[in-house]
């Protein structure tokens, strides 16, 4: 087949995506009722190690600075885990490393959860819908073609996936693997953050920027160093907003370790249950979780929780 002019290809692709509805539909209804009880997944560490075995009396919740009643509940099972993977033309440089992470997932992630795979470059596409079979995700990743797009829509990808997950009941995890760069999104980082704050989604991000800069700097476009620092910040922001975690590995084994880290952290999270309402005023209501021991003190505990809630 002769090479097609780029413009034709672009047009065709957009129409395919629209006509086939392979891209996401715009979110139409907020699923979480403003007054609905909220799940709050938190990780607790001390001296860099996860702390297990805490009970409800160890937790103090503050909403907008005021103490709020909180309960401890078992994790919701199964969780819904969505891999959101950048598939831009520059992502092709570190395909091997991402593959190592996905292989680690296939070999070590727990059975029983729902897993899905979404890719994004210019457009956001569902590569594999939710399945309980990890090998389906692995083979969907293997068969993922190269998009060829330089355009990257990280914000749209997060906005759309979180928007979808908000309307499905259960525990939601997004594993975002990409650079954090954004050159094309309709939505802003602020939009993605708001969507995240209105949901109970936790984002774990595995950043590809370090690798891209270290290994391929001579080949990639100028100005990358600057935007790579910003992109790093994007991933950190999304993880912090949602009480997740971020990794910037620089080797295939580092990617695999990060992936294992995702599932370790997930498994050890506490699920707090807050039955109070969040006023639907569109404002961010700040959340603060503290650990206290029997003496009422909290020596050296670090709590990772989402920054706040926002009711649409």
């Amino acid at each position: 087949m002769p090479a097609k002019p780029r413009a034709t290809r672009t047009a065709a692709r957009q129409i395919i995506a629209g006509g086939l509805a392979l891209t996401f539909w715009a979110a139409r209804v907020p699923a979480v009722e403003p007054d609905a009880p909220r799940n709050l997944y938190v990780s607790v560490e001390r001296d860099g190690r996860p702390v297990e075995g805490l009970d409800p009396t160890n937790f103090r919740l503050f909403v907008d600075g005021s103490p709020a009643p909180v309960q401890l509940a078992p994790q919701e099972q199964p969780a819904q885990v969505v891999f959101v993977i950048e598939n831009s033309s520059s992502a092709e440089y570190y395909r091997t490393e991402i593959a190592a992470a996905m292989q680690e997932f296939e070999e070590t992630a727990p059975e029983g959860h729902w897993y899905a795979l979404v890719s994004f470059a210019r457009d956001v596409e569902v590569v594999a819908d939710f399945t309980r079979r990890k090998e389906n995700i692995a083979s969907a990743f293997d068969s993922m073609g190269q998009s060829g797009w330089q355009d990257i829509s990280t914000f749209d990808a997060v906005y759309n996936v979180v928007g979808k997950l908000r309307r499905i009941r259960g525990r939601h995890i997004v594993v975002l693997i990409g650079s954090g760069l954004d050159r094309y999104s309709e939505r802003s980082l602020g939009d993605a953050e708001k969507q995240l704050q209105a949901s109970d989604v936790t984002i774990y991000a595995i950043g590809t920027g370090t690798l891209l800069r270290r290994q391929y700097e001579p080949y990639v476009f100028p100005g990358l160093r600057m935007s790579e620092m910003q992109a790093r910040g994007v991933l950190e922001t999304l993880a912090e907003d949602s009480g997740g975690k971020v990794w910037f590995p620089d080797s295939a084994s580092g990617f695999a370790d990060a992936m294992r880290g995702v599932f370790t952290d997930m498994a050890l999270q506490y699920r707090l249950f807050y039955a109070g309402g969040i006023p639907p005023d569109g404002k961010l209501h700040k959340i603060n979780v503290k650990i206290v021991d029997f003496g009422g003190r909290a020596p050296g505990y670090k709590v990772r929780a989402r920054k706040g809630w926002r009711a649409a």
């Binding site: 819904q80 729902w114 569902v126 819908d129 939710f130 979808k164 309307r167 009941r169 259960g170």
Partner: peptide, 16 residues
Amino acid sequence: EESEPNRPSLLSPEPG
């Protein structure tokens, strides 16, 4: 899996 009643979907226009 195809017939699992509580299977979530990202492809459904209205999830859930």
